[in-house]
Amino acid sequence: MDQRVKPAPHEIRRARSDNPKMRERDLAAQLGISEAELVAAHCGEGVLRVEARANDLLTGLEAVGEVMALTRNDSAVHEKIGIYDKVVTGDHSALALGENIDLRIFPKVWKHGFAVEKRDGDDVRHSLQFFDTAGDAVHKVHLRPASNLYAYQKLVARLQSADQSPAIAVEPAPAHMDAEVSGTPTDAAALRESWSRLTDVHEFFGMLRKLKLGRRQAMRMVGADYAWQLEAGVVPLMFERAVADEMPIMCFVGNRGCIQIHSGPVRNIKPMGPWLNVMDETFHLHLRTDHVAEVWAVRKPTKDGHVTSLEAYDADGRMIIQFFGKRHEGEVERADWRALAESLPRLAAPVAA
């Protein structure tokens, strides 16, 4: 974000009215502010500030019924239509484990929240929008025609903030989770030893933190039996083959405050310019393929045998999107997914460490 003087709330509202068709995220960038500041400027004009209490949100949303859950980062937007159920609350992490809405939430990252009403002719569209300390979106919930508006209004009243001012304070974004770690890295032998002793994919991040390594640093060091770099354009090819084989996959898109997961087949792929779009009945994905700078295939040992992921990164080393074959705890990896991942074209000259 640049260092120019930020516009006042009334100036932000005027810019919004002058650009009614522009996406909030794009208008905020044009104004040199965060998306949360843009939304906050409209408090009292279709926007109500709510407290970013992720656990209370999760427990209150089931009664609202069918909604659309949206989680995004700079390069991918992941949308799922369904119900928030099978909720597990927690201070460090919280979960929604429903059939369609499957989330991993990190409540301490959530800072700002808003209930937003938008008029579209005679219709009013309702959403709950949550942001981190930098004002970047972590998660949004959009009501649908089948949603229970009364339950939604009760939830909004429960979360309503005493502070309804149209300005918020934001802080610079912290270093991203996948950042390279400076200093003397762990030697490859120590990394391979730790990697070989993994018993669950969820142990991977803890291993990296203990060894003081970034994800791509580890992949470059560990050896091609555990991680190998693919051609940067393989993600559309992966989708093409998964659709042709009706193969159920898992697709993860996340940011610091939330990870959202699709599990199941994908069917309707629509490229449009740089965007790869999945437009299925309960799953929509919008991926900027031109942002993908590196793709890695990664094998992680588990107690059920190794599992294979595809991981796409942007030019700054941030993970954009991650894929697995659909599986449940205690199941071996799907043979068709493993074969697909291992058949994708490898990069002829991998990036040096």
Results as ranks from 00 to 15, higher is better:
121 G>Y: 08
342 E>I: 05
181 V>M: 07
323 F>T: 03
168 I>Y: 05
194 S>C: 06
236 P>L: 06
122 D>W: 11
29 A>C: 12
285 L>C: 09
55 N>P: 01
263 S>A: 10
277 N>I: 02
288 R>C: 13
294 E>T: 07
104 R>C: 03
288 R>Q: 12
192 R>E: 06
23 R>T: 12
310 L>A: 01
87 V>N: 01
217 Q>W: 03
342 E>P: 15
167 A>Y: 12
2 D>L: 15
148 N>T: 10
250 M>D: 02
336 D>R: 05
59 T>P: 02
190 A>L: 11
13 R>I: 02
103 L>T: 03
183 G>H: 00
133 T>F: 13
181 V>L: 12
29 A>T: 10
112 H>C: 00
306 H>Y: 15
12 I>S: 01
294 E>R: 14
60 G>Q: 07
342 E>K: 15
351 V>K: 15
157 A>Y: 04
325 G>D: 00
46 G>E: 08
259 I>A: 02
263 S>H: 11
352 A>W: 09
44 G>V: 07
179 A>N: 03
342 E>M: 14
93 S>Y: 14
43 C>T: 12
259 I>F: 04
196 S>W: 00
76 A>R: 03
169 A>V: 15
99 E>N: 12
282 T>G: 07
174 P>T: 06
168 I>K: 01
239 F>N: 09
130 F>S: 04
271 P>V: 07
351 V>T: 14
266 V>F: 09
102 D>S: 11
141 V>N: 07
141 V>D: 04
212 K>Q: 14
131 F>T: 04
330 G>W: 03
249 I>W: 00
215 R>E: 04
80 K>P: 08
309 S>F: 07
341 A>K: 04
240 E>Q: 10
305 G>W: 08
71 T>N: 06
268 N>W: 09
226 Y>C: 12
338 R>F: 11
48 L>W: 13
120 D>Y: 14
130 F>G: 02
188 A>Y: 01
147 S>H: 03
156 V>G: 06
285 L>R: 09
45 E>A: 14
59 T>D: 05
306 H>S: 15
53 R>E: 08
108 K>N: 13
46 G>H: 01
68 M>K: 03
215 R>F: 03
81 I>S: 12
51 E>I: 00
192 R>T: 06
24 E>K: 13
48 L>S: 14
108 K>D: 14
179 A>D: 06
168 I>M: 00
255 N>C: 06
105 I>F: 12
312 A>V: 08
234 V>T: 04
59 T>R: 13
326 K>S: 10
254 G>M: 02
126 H>K: 10
317 G>S: 02
241 R>E: 09
46 G>T: 00
172 P>Q: 07
310 L>F: 00
329 E>S: 13
22 M>G: 03
4 R>I: 08
118 K>D: 10
332 V>R: 11
21 K>S: 14
326 K>M: 10
344 L>F: 03
144 R>M: 06
334 R>E: 10
139 H>T: 01
275 W>A: 02
25 R>F: 14
310 L>D: 01
